[in-house]
Simulated assay, not measured.
Amino acid sequence: MTDTNTTRVAVLVGSLRADSLNRKLAELLRDEAPAGVTLDIIDGLGEVPFYNEDLDGESAPAAAVALRERVAAADRVLAVTPEYNGTMPAVLNNAIDWISRPYGAGAVVGKPFGVIGATPTPYGGKWAHGDTARSAGIAGAIVVEDVTVSQPAVDVDPTTDPDVRAKLLAALGTLVDFAPEASAA
Rank of each mutant, 00 (worst) to 15 (best):
H129V: 01
S15C: 13
E47Y: 02
R68C: 05
V91M: 08
R30I: 08
A136Y: 01
T121Q: 01
E58W: 09
P102Q: 09
G130D: 03
P122N: 09
D54G: 13
I116E: 01
G86L: 06
E32Q: 13
A141F: 07
G44L: 12
T38I: 07
V176I: 09
G36A: 06
S100N: 06
W127Y: 11
V149F: 10
R70G: 02
D163C: 08
G44Q: 10
F113E: 09
R68T: 01
A90I: 04
E69W: 11
K111R: 12
T174I: 14
P112C: 00
A171Q: 13
T6K: 12
G104C: 02
A26T: 05
D3T: 05
L67R: 07
A153Q: 09
T6I: 15
A90K: 03
A60S: 13
V115R: 06
R17I: 00
G57V: 10
V176L: 12
F113H: 04
V154E: 11
D40L: 07
P158E: 04
A74D: 06
T87P: 04
T121R: 02
A33M: 12
E145N: 15
L67A: 10
N85V: 01
N85E: 03
P152V: 07
D40I: 11
G110C: 13
Y103A: 08
P49L: 03
N93L: 14
T160S: 13
R23L: 15
E69P: 04
F50G: 09
G36H: 09
V144Q: 10
V65A: 10
